[in-house]
Design a protein around this nucleic acid. Structure first.
Lengths: 223, 223
DNA sequence: AGTCAATTGTCAGCGACTGACATAAACTCC
DNA sequence: GGAGTTTATGTCAGTCGCTGACAATTGACT
């Protein structure tokens, strides 16, 4: 089902591990890693697609057969994390309230984040890449769009958990939007932090989540 | 202070209305309107910068002296709305709780939205343009980035209202992020609506805001 | 081994964008 | 109102992201 990109062959099974399929996965991984290394060292704009392709000894044309655009090579990690997150929300115990489930899922996801990605890219590179995306306008825009799409998927999952139709009952949509906004501030704050480590990441998340309670919506002067 | 873009002259006052300045504003407006007309009729990707420039009888190079990129011509309206919103939050009565102030400000802004923009572009074009941005991935990404930047500004304003330092106290940041997420779902839902009118816009906003209360963060099963 | 399908490189071309230079227009001051 | 100085504009050449088309190579299956 999940083909490694170039031409979804009409009869190709693509899930079994033929020599061909392994080769494709290797090239794709190599391209992604090469791209990230160049992006983090030279900057995104200063890196040409030719440079990425040369580093893997393929033609520029081949790069574009694996990635629809230069940007996409920067989001292979995000892609994995997104899948983990969706699965995590889905697998949360049914008795949890929606907000609890989201909180638990994001904690899980961020906890296992580096382990899940480790095979593809070293943690060091991954963290620097996160900052590159945050500080490059063109990439940041794409990340935010991806997260907006992710919100849609999460909304579906939450609605199903509660047995609601998201078009009728707006609560899933609204909760997910608000919650995602909060998570984004947490990751943003973490990205600006000088010491980017799994530990500071966890702490940033908890600090932001702690504030997001019913008291936030009322007056603050009494506090 | 607000120069119309081509070369910020070292001695040019640029706030007074010289013949030169008026001419620039006219071409800038004409370029923006031409761009929006083409974007809404042919689609964003199918519209070339040459086509936009030709329609205003200037060279392609001149277009890029007024707008840093093809995208930017699509966001002159958003820019105005953003300014209105910031001002609206700032001018809210000091006794209002942060959440109240944000709610009031967004209502105000959306109410006067079409009137505020009317001089630059007709309402019809404006609304169709909104949908074009929502349905064009490249443009949607930019809009989301702009809104993220807007959140930062609003956070500053809210923090100042409450006499807080946004780096110490995370509440402004977190509230604004959550609230902005909710507003975004409202505008998104409106954009997908078949009948895009000021009336349906207001209703979408109220429906989404109504859901965003303390009950949302707890369990829903009791309801 | 031979056939078939799928990946790859090469090439030509489009569109977004930029720096450099020359021209023409508007502003300034006398 | 004319001389000199900014400042906007057009032209040109060039880079980079990206795509379609074709031919050559390589893996897969019998």
């Amino acid at each position: 089902m999940t083909n490694t990109v170039p031409g979804a062959g009409r009869r190709a099974p693509s899930c079994v591990t033929g020599l061909r399929e392994r080769k494709k996965q290797r090239t794709r991984g190599a391209l992604a890693r090469a791209a990230m290394e160049l992006f983090t060292t030279q900057g995104y704009e200063a890196t040409t697609v030719d440079a990425i392709a040369d580093r893997v000894d393929v033609s520029q044309r081949t790069f574009f057969r694996y990635f629809a655009g230069k940007e996409d090579a920067a989001f292979v990690v995000d892609e994995i994390v997104e899948e983990h997150y969706v699965a995590a929300v889905r697998d949360r115990p049914a008795h949890e309230a929606p907000m609890e489930a989201l909180r638990g899922a994001i904690r899980e996801t961020w906890q296992e984040l580096f382990a899940a990605v480790h095979e593809l890219v070293p943690a060091e590179l991954h963290m620097r890449m996160y900052q590159v995306v945050e500080s490059t306008p063109a990439l940041l825009a794409v990340r935010l769009r991806r997260q907006a799409q992710l919100e849609q998927r999460i909304t579906e999952v939450v609605a199903r958990r509660e047995g609601l139709d998201p078009r009728t009952d707006l609560r899933p949509q609204v909760l997910v939007a608000a919650f995602s906004g909060v998570v984004r501030t947490a990751s943003q704050a973490w990205g600006q932090h000088a010491d980017v480590s799994p530990e500071t990441m966890r702490r940033s998340l908890e600090r932001h989540l702690a504030v997001f309670g019913p008291e936030l919506l009322g007056g603050w002067r009494a506090s």
